[in-house]
């Protein structure tokens, strides 16, 4: 295992993992403990998800944090749209291998084939949403903690290139519902997104 040395990010992530693994109530009872595979199975059941989010981004380039809010839409297996409504309208769409960013009347296309780092990020997101455990494991070191009602997934990029700008992500939620995504970049930029979503499960 290649953990970053004693960087602030490392300390934050280990403390997070520690606190979560301690705080998990032993509600699983007689059954085997709820784990990553169970979570992936639950997430794989999600056919469609809609929600609202609030996000706070901090960057060393910015004098103060930027707050934004909007809606999220996911449709299995590989469509995701994030629409920012405030402070400024912005659309971010993931479809297959194409990422599209629409803002200020301009549309930008990014192909994951042309930006390998983007591929790592996008495929990671997609694998999490689709409950594709094997892809997720290929791209990230994964740590699962918590219970079915209150789980947390820590993702650390395996690819050194990806780690150059993304140190780690934590995704947390309850059942098949994602509630919070925190990501920390290598330069120390931090994004915290809280989500309220409704999911439609496959029958």
């Amino acid at each position: 295992m290649r953990f970053p040395k004693l960087t602030p990010a490392f300390i934050v992530c280990t403390s997070l993992a520690w606190s979560l693994s301690c705080s998990g109530p032993a509600s699983a009872g007689m059954r085997a403990q709820y784990g990553l595979n169970d979570l992936m199975q639950d997430l794989a059941q999600v056919k469609m998800a809609d929600g609202q989010f609030e996000e706070i981004r901090q960057s060393k380039l910015l004098a103060s944090p930027v707050k934004s809010s909007g809606t999220l839409h996911y449709s299995a297996p590989d469509f995701m749209q994030k629409t920012v409504q405030a402070p400024e309208k912005q659309d971010f769409i993931l479809k297959g291998n194409e990422a599209t960013l629409v803002m200020q009347g301009k549309t930008r296309h990014f192909s994951t084939g042309q930006a390998p780092q983007l591929a790592g990020l996008v495929n990671g997101m997609r694998a999490t949403l689709a409950g594709d455990g094997s892809t997720l494991d290929r791209l990230y070191e994964t740590r699962f903690s918590g219970t079915r009602n209150e789980w947390q997934l820590l993702l650390i990029p395996r690819d050194a290139k990806l780690r150059q700008f993304l140190s780690w992500i934590t995704v947390s939620g309850s059942d098949a519902i994602i509630e919070k995504i925190v990501s920390v970049s290598a330069s120390g930029d931090l994004s915290t997104m809280t989500v309220k979503e409704n999911v439609t499960l496959a029958r």
Binding site: E55, R57, A99, L101
Partner: peptide
């Protein structure tokens, strides 16, 4: 910077 491509 505040989009999902921000970190990149």
């Amino acid at each position: 910077l505040s989009s999902d491509l921000g970190p990149m």
